[in-house]
Design a protein around this nucleic acid. Structure first.
Lengths: 342, 342
DNA sequence: TTGAAAGCGCTAACAC
DNA sequence: GTGTTAGCGCTTTCAA
C-alpha cells in the first residue's frame, strides 16, 4: 500500500555518484559527464525513479501548475477552452489544476476558491467567465502570481484580460440584421453582471441606433438554456413579436430556436431571424445552422498562454489587455439579403 | 515580482510561539491551547499567511490532488463528468489535475501522461474513456496510487472500474426497436477499441437475436461527429436502407439525425427510428428529442469518488468494479408502439 | 500543552 | 565535473 518511494538518493547510491549529480542530471541535464549520466540513467531506470516535482517546486518556487477557475461547462464554449488550454499548457510542461466555481459567479466564492488555488503555489491563474475582488487581485499580485481573465473584462489594472471584440461583434450583428431589412429587434440578455453581456448588448444597440433603429423587446436568459427558453416564450407570445432576435450566446440561442420552432411553430428565418455569439460546435450542426459571431478559442488560448508565460518567465509582470477580432459567420438562421429590387 | 512568501515561521515569531505550534494549529487544529490559538490566528491574518500545501504533502505523502485523464471533451458527456467530479472532489478538499490525452486514446500516450501525473504525487488517478498498459497499472499499484477507469472496462485486476450497464442498455434498445415493429436494424459503431462500443454492440445484437432478428447494416463512426455523418451517408444511401438505427452514443446520433433529415430528407421517426446512448443535455433539446439510454453521471461520479476515497483513506486497496444501472428514455425519435390491431 | 530537532526529496551555492 | 552543505516550508517524534 504505502508506495515504495524511490528517491534521488537511492539512484545515487546505485549509480555510485552523489545525490546532487542525480539532481543535476534531471534538472539542468548537462551539468554532468556523459559517463556519469549513463550510470544515473541506468540506475534510475532499474529503480523506476522519477523526480518528485512537488519537492522540486518547494525549492524552485515554481510548481508548473496553472489554476483554472471555470464556472459552467454547460455552455459548450468552455469545454473547448479547458481542452485547448490544458493541451497547450501540457505542451509547455505545465498542468492545469481545475476549480469549479458556483455558476452564480459570486465574487466571494471566486475569492475563496482563488485562495485555495494559491495554497497550491500555482504559477498563474486563469479565471474563465469569472471576476474577483480587488483585494484578492492585490494579494495575487503581491505573491507574484499572474492572473488572466478569460472572456471577461474588469477594470483592475493588475489583471490581464483576454477577450474578443464583444462590442464590435454586437454591432456587426445589428448591422447584418438591419441590412436584411428587419424592423423589430429583440435581444435576449445573458447574466447582467457579465462584461460580455454588457458589451455585446451595447454594441448591438449602437449598431441599431446608427441606422435609426432601436430595440423592440428585451428579456434576460442569464446564459442558461432553461431561462432562455422562458425568455423566448415571453418575448414571442403576444400580438406583436420581433422579426429578428440577437441572443447573447449560442447556447441560449439554441434554446430560443427550439421554442420558436417546436413550441410556437415559427419558421426560421422566414418568420424570425436568429443570431447568436461564440460559434460553438452545435452552431454548425444542420439542426441549428446558426448565424453567429465567431470567437476563436485557439486564438484566445494562445494569447492567454502568452500572457501567462510572459509573467512567469520574463521580468514581465505588466498586465496585458488583449482584445481579439472575431468575425461574422452567416448560416441559415438569417434570411438572405433581399435583392435590391424595389 | 518575487512574491513575499509568508511562512509559519513568520507567524510564529509574530505570535510569540514556536513554529511547530503554528503547524499544529493548522494541521490537527486542536493540539494547541485556546490562548495560543488566538494569537496564531491573529498573527496569520495580519500577515496573510496560508499553509503551503506542497510543503505539507512532501512530508505527509498526500497531495490532495487527483489526476484526471480525459480524451475528448467534444462529446458532451465528458464536460459533465469533469464538472461533477471536480466539484465533488473539491467538497472533500481534493483538487483535480487535468491531463488531456490525444483523442486516439493510444495506450502509449496514456502511459506517458500517467507517468507525468505520478510525478505530481497525486493521490489517485481517474482515466475517463482511456485505458492503460498493464506495466503502468502495476507501477501505480506499487506506488500505492489507486486508478479508477471511468466508463471503460479493462481486465487488469489492479484497476477499479466504474461503468454503466452497456450490455444491458444495448439489449434494451434492441428490444424497444423490435417491439416497435422494426425489421431492418442499422448500427453505427464507436471507436472499436473501446469497451463501451463492444458491450453496447454485443448487447444490441443479443437483443435482436433473442427475437430472431439480426443486424442489417453496420458502419463505424469512431465516436466523432464528422465520421458519424459519413457513416450515416454510407448506410442510408442506396436502394435498401435500415428502418431503425442504434448509434453508439448520443454525440454521433446527432450527426446521424442531421444527415437523415437535412441531407437525405428522411423523417424521424416516420421513415427511420434513431436511438442513442448517454442522454447528454442536447438529447433533451426539442431539435433532437432523442430516445436514448441514460447513464447517470452523478451516480457514476459518486461511485468513482467512493472508490477513490476508500483507497486513499481506508486500508482499502482492493479494486472495485462497479456497474451501474441505466434506463431507457423514450422521446421523439422512435415511433409510438403500434396499436395491437392485426 | 509546548518547543527543539530531525527530515520529507529536492535544488543551488560553494569548494574542490 | 563533482561532492558537500545548507536549506525550501512543513509535519512529527521526542522531551520537557
Amino acid at each position: 500500500m504505502a508506495g515504495e518511494r524511490v528517491t534521488s538518493n537511492d539512484v545515487a547510491r546505485l549509480a555510485g555518484v552523489s545525490q546532487s549529480a542525480v539532481s543535476r542530471y534531471y534538472s539542468t541535464g548537462n551539468l554532468v559527464s556523459t559517463k556519469a549520466g549513463e550510470k544515473i540513467k541506468q540506475a534510475a531506470e532499474q529503480l523506476g525513479y522519477r523526480p518528485n516535482v512537488l519537492a522540486r517546486s518547494l525549492i524552485t518556487g515554481r510548481s508548473r501548475m496553472i489554476g483554472l477557475v471555470v464556472a459552467y461547462l454547460e455552455n459548450y464554449f468552455y469545454p473547448e477552452v479547458v481542452e485547448r488550454l490544458s493541451k497547450a499548457l501540457q505542451d509547455q510542461g505545465y498542468h492545469v489544476l481545475v476549480f469549479i466555481s458556483s455558476p452564480a459567479s459570486v465574487v466571494e466564492n471566486v475569492d475563496q476558491i482563488t485562495q485555495e488555488i494559491l495554497d497550491y503555489q500555482v504559477d498563474g491563474i486563469v479565471l474563465a467567465s469569472a471576476t474577483m475582488s480587488s483585494e484578492l487581485a492585490a494579494r495575487c499580485h503581491a505573491h507574484g502570481v499572474p492572473i488572466v481573465l478569460f472572456n471577461r473584462l474588469q477594470d483592475d489594472p493588475r489583471l490581464s484580460t483576454v477577450t474578443s471584440d464583444n462590442h464590435g461583434g454586437g454591432r456587426k450583428l445589428a448591422e447584418l440584421l438591419v441590412s436584411l431589412g428587419h424592423e423589430r429587434f429583440g435581444y435576449i440578455a445573458g447574466y447582467e453582471g457579465a462584461s460580455t453581456q454588457r458589451d455585446r448588448e451595447a454594441g448591438f444597440r449602437e449598431g441599431l441606433e446608427a441606422s435609426g433603429h432601436r430595440l423592440f423587446a428585451r428579456e434576460v436568459g442569464n446564459f442558461r438554456y432553461d431561462e432562455a427558453q422562458a425568455a423566448a416564450r415571453r418575448m414571442f407570445t403576444g400580438p406583436e413579436r420581433p422579426d429578428a432576435v440577437f441572443v447573447c450566446n449560442d447556447h441560449m440561442a439554441f434554446a430560443v430556436m427550439d421554442v420558436l420552432r417546436y413550441e410556437l411553430g415559427l419558421r426560421i428565418p422566414d418568420d424570425v431571424s436568429v443570431v447568436g455569439f461564440d460559434d460553438v460546435p452545435p452552431a454548425r450542426w444542420p439542426a441549428y445552422s446558426l448565424t453567429t459571431f465567431r470567437q476563436d478559442v485557439d486564438d484566445m488560448v494562445a494569447e492567454t498562454l502568452r500572457t501567462l508565460m510572459e509573467s512567469v518567465n520574463g521580468a514581465g509582470g505588466v498586465p496585458r489587455r488583449v482584445v481579439l477580432d472575431g468575425f461574422l459567420v452567416q448560416r441559415a438562421t438569417t434570411r438572405r439579403a433581399p435583392t435590391s429590387a424595389t
